[in-house]
């Protein structure tokens, strides 16, 4: 039964990382830079729910509001910062440093507005606890798993079978060609930021439901998402999902064998190993 519990813990961690990494990869595919602000956008989503529930909104409405907040913040970062940088044809490093700046700014805005403390997002005792094959799993965790599956499915269908998806794929393959085909790439990237940031917001909200919210939560989410996406092959959605679950399992089973205080370091150990031996990740193209 401990084995079952570890599997359950790993799967749920993997599902949460999936949500983050999907948005991260979507944005990376279109813009070709590592958006360090992605985690802070996730935190914005979680705080959107925190604020809305405090104001007495119902849970479903609050979640919609939180997801939208994250999406809008993502678009704003693109419009105000990344889009002008694209027009200047700045180097990738400039994008990355600017995104680090956005990350710091958003985190400080959250701290100033809501305080630096940690708060649970759900009142205590919300949701049932299920016993699945000897493992205890909470209702929220099932929601995380369900959301990850649903988000992956919808995104997959969207990219594979719609015109919109073809446009995004054309953009990811070659921005110049996409431009020649008459696509307004700048506006498309804005839409992608909206989608990817909404996914991040959802991840932030669910993570907040599972444990709680804190302004610093974004960095952790971003790093786990970034590690998943590199391990899976950066820019590859399927790879990202594989990477997320691999990371979930390695983290949770890893500390079965070594002292658990190393949990934080395991993700980065895995990343370093991949960077050295297979930098293009599981599914990555050369």
């Amino acid at each position: 039964m401990f084995f079952a519990q570890l599997v359950a813990n790993s799967v749920i961690a993997g599902a949460l990382y999936t949500l983050i990494t999907l948005g991260f990869n979507l944005i990376y595919g279109a813009t070709k830079f590592t958006n360090m602000a992605h985690g802070a956008v996730a935190a914005m989503g979680a705080y959107g729910v925190f604020f809305a529930t405090r104001e007495g909104w119902g849970l479903p409405l609050s979640i919609v509001a939180g997801v939208l907040v994250a999406g809008i913040v993502g678009v704003i970062t693109d419009r105000l910062v990344f889009s002008p940088l694209r027009k200047k044809k700045a180097r990738a490093s400039v994008f990355v440093i600017a995104s680090l700046g956005i990350f710091a700014l958003l985190q400080s805005i959250l701290s100033i507005t809501f305080g630096a403390q940690f708060w649970p997002l759900l009142p205590p005792g919300t949701g049932r606890v299920f016993d699945i094959a000897g493992a205890s799993v909470t209702e929220v965790q099932l929601w995380i798993l369900g959301s990850a599956v649903a988000a992956s499915g919808i995104l997959f269908i969207l990219l594979k079978f719609t015109i919109f998806g073809k446009v995004i794929r054309a953009l990811s393959d070659d921005e110049e060609v996409a431009k020649m085909l008459g696509i307004n790439t700048d506006r498309m990237i804005g839409v992608i930021f909206f989608l990817g940031s909404m996914l991040a917001g959802l991840a932030g909200i669910l993570s907040g439901f599972d444990t709680g919210v804190q302004p610093t939560m974004g960095l952790f989410l971003l790093l786990e998402g970034a590690v998943s996406s590199i391990v899976g092959g950066i820019g590859s959605l399927v790879g990202g999902i594989l990477g997320a679950f691999l990371l979930g399992f390695v983290e949770n089973f890893g500390i079965w064998f070594i002292a658990s205080q190393w949990k934080g370091a395991i993700a980065f150990g895995l990343l370093t190993i991949f960077l050295i031996f297979r930098p293009r990740g599981i599914m990555g193209k050369d």
Binding site: T34, L223, W262, F268, G269, L271, P279
Partner: peptide
């Protein structure tokens, strides 16, 4: 040896590993 973004992320993770080692 890694490209720009990878190098940057690797360095962030290195920062974590070092702090984790100092703590543990």
């Amino acid at each position: 040896r890694l490209g720009g973004d990878y190098y940057m992320l690797a360095s962030v993770s290195w920062n974590y590993i070092v702090v984790s080692v100092l703590i543990n």
